[in-house]
Nucleic acid binder design. Structure first.
Lengths: 126, 126
DNA sequence: CAGTTAGATGCATATTTTCGCATCTGTGGA
DNA sequence: TCCACAGATGCGAAAATATGCATCTAACTG
């Protein structure tokens, strides 16, 4: 094991916390905890604009919380598990606990289930 | 055990994450992980203005991360342990891990130790 | 009671962030 | 090759933040 010797972790941490400092992005993370989603699914579940959904996902991605797989026209986002920073595991766990019983979070998750699946699985043939 | 049924946790969580989304405040939290501090000790360790130290502490306090004990002229801040939200435990743990080896954080902790103790313990007789 | 000291806060300013609208990009289908 | 659709992004306006300076408050001291 080489010495990673975190030197500039402060900036990284600020970036991570900033990414979690917005209701929309927390709601996005919340639905992604249920299952992988493409942008339009997030948009539907949260009832927000396309641009807003896309930007929220990008921000979370840039902060290292998400993984992105392109499938044809779709961008399939999921919570990063492999290359997640150690401290990010704790942050995400905190978010999960906090939103477990939150009204908005519950509603978003409900809409995600209820909404008809528009994801790449139905349409895209790799 | 009554049903607390966390309903409005989203706002709380956003507030908590916002509080952690600033380098100064993370540095403050970092030194408080070493030991309880009054405002001027934080100011010295971080080499920042009095107003900035005071405001940073207030913000963290309002977010529920800190405990405050007044001792005469001094305000003694410490990390809240008793009444800390469950999810805040994870958030703080994440911060601790991230800053463990960070250069700035190390320097701040070093200055905290080195700095002559101005705290209430020397001065205040309860 | 007046002076001193630690800390809190109002105000003004500079910076950052959010978000809709419109537009651009890239991929797959006809 | 042209069209349609998912998603990314530039831009500008509005809102939220951070922070220094000066000032105010409260508590101990003499």
């Amino acid at each position: 094991m080489h010495l990673t010797a975190g030197r500039l972790d402060m900036r990284e941490l600020v970036k991570s916390c900033k990414a979690l400092s917005d209701e929309t992005r927390l709601r996005v993370l919340n639905v992604l905890m249920e299952r992988d989603c493409c942008v339009s699914e997030v948009r539907q579940a949260l009832q927000i604009s396309q641009a807003r959904a896309s930007r929220s996902l990008s921000t979370l991605y840039d902060a290292g919380f998400l993984r992105l797989r392109r499938r044809g026209l779709w961008s399939l986002y999921s919570i990063e598990k492999e290359n997640l920073q150690e401290y990010s595991v704790d942050l995400i766990e905190g978010v999960r606990k906090a939103l477990k019983d939150d009204e908005t979070a519950l509603l978003d998750r409900h809409r995600l289930e209820g909404g008809k699946r528009l994801g790449p699985d139905q349409v895209c043939k790799p």
